[in-house]
Computed example of a mutant assay.
Amino acid sequence: MQTQSPLRIRISWPAGHLTATLDDTTTTQALAKALPLVSTAQTWGEEVYLDTGVVVPRETNARQVVEAGTVTFWTDGDALALPYGPTPISRGDECRLASPCNVLGQLDGDPRLLSTVRAGDPIRVELMDG
C-alpha cells in the first residue's frame, strides 16, 4: 500500500452509496486487506455498523465521541461503525459510540445519506482506484 496517498473506500447499499477517505493506520491497513467485503448492515440509533471479520486491537487514539461522518472501527465487535447522528447513549446531539473505537477517517459528502440504510440491508465496502 502506498503510504503517501490516502486510502479511499466506497460503501454501497441498496438505496445509495458514500465514499470515504481513510488515514494510514494499522486498522486501515488490516481492513484494506479484507476488501472488498459484503456484510449485513445493522443500525443503532443514528449509526450504521457492519461486521468485517477483521480483528485488530484498540489503538491508543480510540475515541467514544466523534463527529458525524467519522469512519470508525469498533474493536469489541470487529465492525466498521459509521455514526451520522445520536445513538441511544448520546448526550444531546453528539455521536457517542458503544465503546471507544479506532478512528479511520471521514466520509466524503453528507453522512445523513446513511439514514437510508435499513437493518438487514446488504452493504458492500470496496477500495477505490487511485
Rank of each mutant, 00 (worst) to 15 (best):
R96N: 10
L82F: 01
T116N: 03
T28I: 09
L18I: 12
T60F: 06
D76I: 14
A15I: 05
A98D: 09
W44K: 12
T21C: 01
R8Y: 02
L18A: 08
V103T: 03
D110G: 10
Q2L: 13
T27N: 02
I11M: 06
G45S: 09
P122M: 13
D108Q: 09
P57L: 07
P122Y: 04
L35R: 03
Q106F: 01
S39C: 13
L7N: 02
T3R: 06
T40D: 11
A68F: 06
T40G: 14
F73T: 07
L7I: 05
P88V: 14
C101Y: 10
T52F: 15
T116K: 13
A98R: 04
S39L: 15
E46H: 08
S12D: 13
G77K: 09
V71T: 05
I123Q: 14
L7P: 02
A81V: 11
W74L: 01
L107W: 00
R118Q: 15
A34L: 07
W44R: 10
V48D: 03
P88G: 02
D121C: 13
E47N: 07
E47L: 13
T26I: 12
G53R: 15
V71G: 01
T60P: 04
K33Q: 14
Q106G: 08
Q4Y: 07
T28M: 00
Q29A: 10
R118K: 14
Y49Q: 05
Q42P: 02
E47T: 06
E47H: 07
T25G: 01
Q2G: 03
P88E: 11
R118T: 15
L22I: 03
A32V: 04
T43A: 13
T60Y: 05
T75R: 04
A81C: 06
L97Y: 00
Q4C: 01
D23I: 00
G120Y: 06
R8C: 04
Y49C: 07
V56S: 05
L114G: 04
V66Q: 08
G120I: 12
V117Y: 13
G69A: 05
L35C: 13
L37K: 12
I89Y: 01
A15H: 06
T43F: 08
L22N: 00
S5Q: 03
V103E: 02
D108K: 08
L114Y: 03
T60H: 07
D23R: 02
Q64R: 11
R112G: 15
A62H: 05
P122T: 15
A119K: 15
R96S: 06
W44S: 12
L31N: 06
I11E: 04
V117E: 15
G69W: 01
G16R: 03
D110Y: 00
L7W: 00
P57A: 05
G109W: 02
G77E: 13
A79D: 09
V38E: 14
Y84H: 11
G92H: 15
L37H: 03
P57H: 08
T28A: 07
P100Q: 10
